[in-house]
Amino acid sequence: MGDEAETSRTASSDGPACRADTVWLRGPFGTARFKVAVADDAQARAQGLMNVESMPSSTGMLFVYEYPRPVSFWMKNTLIPLDMVFADAEGVVTSVHENAVPLDETSIPGEGMVQYVLEINGGLARQIGIGPGSVLRHPAITDGAWPCQ
């Protein structure tokens, strides 16, 4: 992958291949791909992207919860601005918080019942066109609106 988030205007009807280290997004913009680390347990979710000094724009972190729930994040010990993409049990984006401020301890809640959160570099969600209604695709999203085959 290059230095920019990879986007495409086309995808097969089945969609791109699912991999544990990759999240795909689909929306009016086409598709976008991010290489991700997965935080799927309490310890990994608590650590998140704290103390990361830089991150290529084609990468991020996917937070996976066992079931949909109200969630909120903060930026304590997080050194780079982030966009937080909140999604429901089907991987449908419910809200996006843009450009979370590094080191800020203000709570950033997702809207509705959230099961997945994708963190990417601040400003990318708007640049790409990721917003409510966009859909995530990843093997952890077992009942997805854009399921892995």
Rank of each mutant, 00 (worst) to 15 (best):
V64L: 00
G144I: 06
A44W: 06
A11Q: 14
G48T: 03
A145P: 03
D14K: 13
A39R: 09
G131Q: 12
P56E: 02
M1S: 14
T78V: 07
G129D: 09
S12A: 14
S58A: 13
M1L: 03
L103W: 09
L25H: 00
H97D: 11
S107G: 10
A42T: 09
G123S: 05
P56G: 07
R126K: 13
S13H: 10
A145C: 07
W24E: 03
N51H: 13
M61W: 00
S12K: 10
E111C: 04
Y67K: 15
V101W: 13
M55V: 08
D14W: 08
Q47P: 01
D104R: 14
S8F: 14
E53Y: 12
A32S: 15
P28G: 15
L136C: 00
A89V: 11
E66W: 11
R137N: 06
A125T: 02
Y116S: 00
A20G: 12
A17H: 09
N121R: 13
K35A: 15
N51T: 06
Q149F: 12
R26G: 06
M113G: 05
A39L: 06
L62V: 03
R26K: 15
E6I: 14
L103K: 14
W24D: 06
I128A: 04
V36T: 09
P16A: 15
T10H: 12
I130L: 09
E90R: 09
V96N: 02
V114W: 02
D40E: 14
R9S: 15
T31I: 08
Q149N: 14
R69D: 11
A42Y: 04
H97G: 08
P70K: 10
G48K: 04
F63R: 08
P68D: 03
F63T: 01
R33E: 11
A100T: 12
W146E: 06
Q127E: 14
N51D: 12
L103H: 14
A11G: 08
P81A: 04
E66D: 15
E66I: 08
G133H: 01
Y65G: 07
S134I: 03
P109S: 10
I130D: 00
Q149V: 09
I108D: 00
A44L: 10
D83Q: 09
S8R: 11
L49A: 05
F34R: 03
V135N: 03
R126E: 08
P28S: 15
V38W: 12
E105C: 05
R19Y: 01
Y116L: 03
L25Q: 03
A87W: 02
N77D: 14
M1D: 11
D3T: 15
G129K: 06
C148R: 09
C148I: 11
M75I: 02
A32P: 05
L62T: 01
N51Y: 12
L124C: 03
P81R: 05
S54N: 13
T94G: 11
G60Q: 02
S54G: 08
R69G: 04
I80F: 08
P68Y: 13
D104M: 12
G110L: 02
E105Y: 12
H97N: 10
F63M: 00
L49D: 01
